[in-house]
């Protein structure tokens, strides 16, 4: 009984909170640029509007064009439910759940890329090709980060891996994971979610032909993924173990807010990188995670 109540509460949280994040990012960007900017709740309005709209479907699109975003959303939501939430712990924790989380995100990527390729538009093809290619490097970083956490904690389940130690390893891991967060969520300097120049984008260009409810599902899924990565980053770096329940929740929320503001600041202060520099940056992220792994390995031996 309790479990099902908790399940519903968590689903509700994951359903309601994520669209807040892009709103905060946009607010920060507007603040840095000295504009007033859209309201923080803008994405909620957009989602509600899109959900009520009709759909224009390409002649070429198969049922997979609709099913893709739905399955991708379920996959991201599943990954989100596996993630422990600080003092709340996780809904279901088992050995190797972290691998399931990583691969659920990969499933979401498969479905989004599949849906993008449905229309036969060269722009979407370009976006999908970039998405799956850069994900190769991001995946290496994520697996390395997982290894670092697992070596550090001596465990392979998420709930116990999220007990980080403070030190240089944490700093390295934070930098690496933040870069991966930017890449996987298609933010500047990898991608510019604000631009409308199709040739330069990754994620936005994949959803060019989507409209109405499927687009709403895609946007909600993207914001959920951002929140997921932010939570993962905060819990992988900030030790919450010793704090009391309200303090831990506050630190967690504060951490997520800090990450979001950080994304907004990066987006205001940096320009999007030329595509040939993207692999270099992702390799750097990989090396940061690798050195975090090295520190974790040495830390235990000493």
């Amino acid at each position: 009984m309790m479990a099902s109540v908790e399940f519903i509460v968590r689903i509700g949280l994951w359903f309601l909170l994520p669209p807040l994040l892009p709103g905060i990012v946009n607010r920060v960007k507007a603040w840095v640029a000295g504009r007033r900017g859209p309201p923080v709740l803008q994405l909620y309005y957009d989602l509600a509007r899109l959900w009520r709209k009709g759909v224009v479907l390409s002649d070429l699109a198969s049922p997979g064009f609709i099913a893709g975003p739905a399955v991708a959303w379920v996959a991201v939501a599943g990954a989100a439910l596996l993630l422990p939430l600080g003092p709340l712990g996780s809904l279901l924790s088992f050995r190797g759940d972290v691998i399931l989380l990583v691969y659920l995100l990969a499933l979401a990527r498969f479905c989004t890329a599949w849906a993008a390729m449905e229309t036969g538009s060269s722009f979407e093809g370009m976006g999908a090709a970039r998405e799956v290619s850069y994900a190769v490097l991001a995946e290496a970083s994520v697996i390395t980060a997982v290894l670092a956490l697992s070596v550090q904690s001596g465990s392979v389940s998420l709930a116990r891996m999220m007990e980080p130690a403070v030190g240089s390893g944490g700093v390295l891991l934070a930098a690496g994971l933040f870069t991966v967060l930017l890449a996987e969520n298609c933010r500047v300097p990898f991608d510019d979610p604000a631009t409308h120049l199709e040739l330069t984008m990754i994620h936005e260009v994949m959803v060019l032909d989507h409209s109405g409810p499927p687009l709403a599902v895609i946007l909600h899924g993207a914001s959920m993924k951002l929140l997921l990565y932010a939570l993962l980053l905060v819990q992988a770096v900030v030790p919450l173990g010793g704090l009391s329940f309200p303090a831990a929740v506050a630190v967690l929320a504060g951490g997520v807010l800090a990450v979001t503001v950080g994304v907004g600041l990066v987006e205001s202060l940096l320009a999007r990188f030329a595509f040939r520099r993207v692999p270099l940056l992702l390799t750097t992220a990989f090396l940061l995670c690798l050195f975090a792994l090295l520190v974790a390995w040495n830390g235990g031996a000493a």
């Binding site: 759909v55 070429l60 609709i66």
Partner: peptide, 21 residues
């Protein structure tokens, strides 16, 4: 989820058109 979204799309009005590109 796929079935629900498919039904929502069908109910909300569906138009076929060439790829926008």
């Amino acid at each position: 989820a796929a079935a629900l979204l498919g039904r929502r799309v069908r109910d909300g009005g569906l138009k076929r058109a060439p790829t926008w590109s």
